[in-house]
Amino acid sequence: MNLFTRLKEGLSKTRSQITSIVGSDSNFGEEFYESLEEAMISADIGLELSLEIIDRLKFEINSLKIDSVHEAYTIFKQMLAKDLDVIKMPEEFPPKPWVTMVVGVNGVGKTTTIGKMAHELRQSGKKVMLGAADTFRAGAIEQLRIWAQRTESQFVSQHEGADAASVAFDSIEAAKARDTDVLLLDTAGRLHTKVNLMNELQKIVKVIRRNTPHAPNEILLVVDATTGQNALKQAKVFNDILGITGLIITKLDGTAKGGVALALTKTFGIPIRKIGVGEGLDDLQDFDPMDYVNAMFGDI
């Protein structure tokens, strides 16, 4: 299901609320801005950013001398889309193997996302390998193995409790030996507040770089769309320690609007690479800023 069609089928109280104000197309005042503010906060965009956006919007509307609510609303959405649109795209795969490491807190959907990414890459004819560097959570290795089978990807693992950096190292060496195009490395979910576990991530990267300086080419942070303002703290710590190159927003098929993504791109300037909109193999989609905004607030 496309994010955009989901929007049309699903939600949304906020949409109808705004629509009713916008639809009336009378002269707009505080009521208009208040409903936008409420809609943004309810979407997890966060208070500070919401207020800041309102300020910018007011300025824009005044300087452009706009008097139709409809137009104002379009400007509002364009503004959000611009905030979401961070372009940094190393889309080619020149160095071989291209190594993508996937990190995040517990339960955001890292392993499932890797499965979907593997599927997408396989569809485009790439040789893919999955490396099971989540050696901590019970059943994690098995879970990734199943995804490797489903997507006909190669698979490298050690036993549960093994050193994650050693699995990462093995995976890259295997990927080189087997002429793999893309290696996707799964890591254990960890709360960003656990110093030891964050150090472990740093160690994984260090071990990888020692032998393969170009890797990891991408370090993707997976963020659950249901997450509130804590996502900013997560991103800050992960980014400080690893240098995150991209975001993946998952679980957008629920009722959570994923507004925290906006706060993330705005604060850290990290691009959103993919969005997860379902549990199926094909439910990992490219990110389009305007689609995303429309899904949050509706298309009128």
Partner: peptide, 12 residues
Amino acid sequence: ADAMTGQDAVNV
């Protein structure tokens, strides 16, 4: 429920 859940906690 995840302690990190945002505004959507009420709907869920």
